[in-house]
């Protein structure tokens, strides 16, 4: 997080300003709406929960509240990596429920205007389900994949979660 906030020129004609939290996952950069992110924490002790999909790492105690932890890498079928000093849990609000997502590193908060978001090309990165990609942000040096949290879990997955 040592990088300063990258200021981006905003042209009023280019639509409203959106703030994103960007994070890294297997060489790629992703972004989610800053309003969805509640906090970013280091890896605590995770309690495994049996009989859940493999990407559910378990649950943690977030100041007295028990929340599920999802491994983004496993969710997107990326190669697994050891947790290191950069590993973070992003606690996010997914349809009213708090959930923690393990990411490789959280880099910064960036501002973009809505018009910079382009529809995602047919094939983006490897295993990510197309549904949860809201678009791609193409800036001079970087390519950012914008995630739509509500679409993170397919209908079947939700069914598993909320009652088989």
């Amino acid at each position: 997080m040592q990088d300063a906030l990258v200021p981006i020129k905003v042209d009023a004609a280019h639509g409203e300003l959106i703030q994103l939290v960007s994070f890294n996952l297997d060489q790629e950069e992703y972004g989610v709406d800053v309003l969805k992110v509640r906090e970013i924490i280091r890896m605590p002790i995770v309690t495994r929960v049996p009989n859940t999909p493999n990407y559910v790492e378990g649950v943690i105690n977030l100041r007295g509240k028990v929340i599920p932890i999802i491994s983004m890498r496993k969710k997107f079928s990326l190669t697994e990596a050891e947790n290191d000093k950069q590993t973070r849990i992003m606690v996010m609000d997914v349809e009213g429920e708090l959930m923690g997502f393990i990411v490789d590193a959280v880099s910064e908060v960036i501002r973009i205007s809505g018009s910079e978001i382009q529809p995602s090309p047919a094939v983006v990165s490897g295993g990510i389900d197309q549904e949860c990609i809201a678009g791609v942000i193409n800036q001079a040096e970087r390519l950012l994949v914008l995630l739509k949290l509500e679409m993170m879990f397919s209908r079947d997955e939700k069914k598993f979660f909320t009652g088989m």
Partner: peptide
């Protein structure tokens, strides 16, 4: 403590 909606039915 409840496990929340997502893990309610294990």
């Amino acid at each position: 403590k409840s496990l929340g909606n997502y893990l309610a039915n294990i």
